[in-house]
């Protein structure tokens, strides 16, 4: 696919975003411009309410673009049809601020959902892949547990496994390490970085976690919906 030659999977130009209508209408993102290189690990920082989640969901096809241009994997998101969005979402991995696991599915079944979205496929192979990735995240003995029987950190790791299992081209992560201890938080981010180097997976991650800043290729700081700092450590 020609998309493999894309050097910059994310290109944002003049992005504005508003919440609410009428009197309550409030601008959350102001004239944002951003280009992100393939295979890089970018960290988004900033105080609470600065617009990090909003930017992430706009780039990740989870929110309609109102003003400006967002190019994702060579496709313009502003005005894209629902069918196009569905196709693009299947090429992404999302790790949410809240773990958002399905309560009635086991850890393995939750991960399988990310594989089955691509079609029926080989059920046995999918099982192997799901259990393998859970194993990599240290959950081999929890693979058949329901979320209610897992700790917060374990649930978060299942959500990470679900985002990674289908080899997405871009991973969006919203505070993925918040529920993890220092050790496993770092393990997860190192995994994401290795994926970038080995497969060209691009990662954009929101985090407050100072312990992992050294792994980033680029750190962007937002304040009140604007980029105030953009550095490459």
């Amino acid at each position: 696919m020609a998309d493999n030659q894309i050097t910059h999977p994310i290109k944002v130009q003049g992005l504005n975003h508003f919440f609410g209508t009428g009197e309550a209408r409030k601008q959350a993102i102001w004239d944002l411009n951003l280009t992100i290189k393939r295979g890089s690990l970018t960290i988004l920082m900033g105080p609470s309410g600065s617009g990090k989640t909003t930017v992430l969901t706009l780039m990740g096809c989870l929110r309609n673009v109102q003003e400006g241009r967002v190019g994702l994997l060579g496709h313009e998101l502003h005005g894209a049809s629902e069918a196009q969005l569905v196709q693009l979402r299947r090429r992404l991995g999302f790790i949410f601020q809240a773990h958002n696991l399905h309560e009635s599915l086991t850890a393995t079944q939750n991960v399988l959902m990310a594989l089955q979205v691509h079609g029926r496929g080989n059920a046995a192979k999918q099982q192997v892949a799901a259990r393998h990735i859970l194993g990599l995240l240290g959950l081999a003995d929890r693979a058949d547990y329901l979320p209610q029987n897992l700790s917060g950190g374990q649930k978060q790791r299942v959500a990470i496994a679900r985002a990674l299992v289908s080899n997405p081209e871009v991973i969006f992560a919203d505070e993925p390490t918040a529920a993890l201890d220092k050790e496993s938080g770092r393990v997860v981010v190192e995994m994401l970085k290795k994926l970038g180097q080995a497969r060209g997976t691009t990662t954009v991650m929101v985090t407050h976690d100072n312990r992992i800043m050294d792994l980033a290729d680029r750190i962007i700081t937002l304040e009140e919906g604007r980029v105030v700092q953009d550095t490459a450590p």
């Binding site: 990740g60 989870l62 629902e82 569905v86 958002n100 399905h102 309560e103 959902m113 990310a114 979205v117």
Partner: peptide, 13 residues
Amino acid sequence: LREYATFKAMGYD
């Protein structure tokens, strides 16, 4: 709804 929204984010239609 939350769980369905997650599936939608994953590319389910």
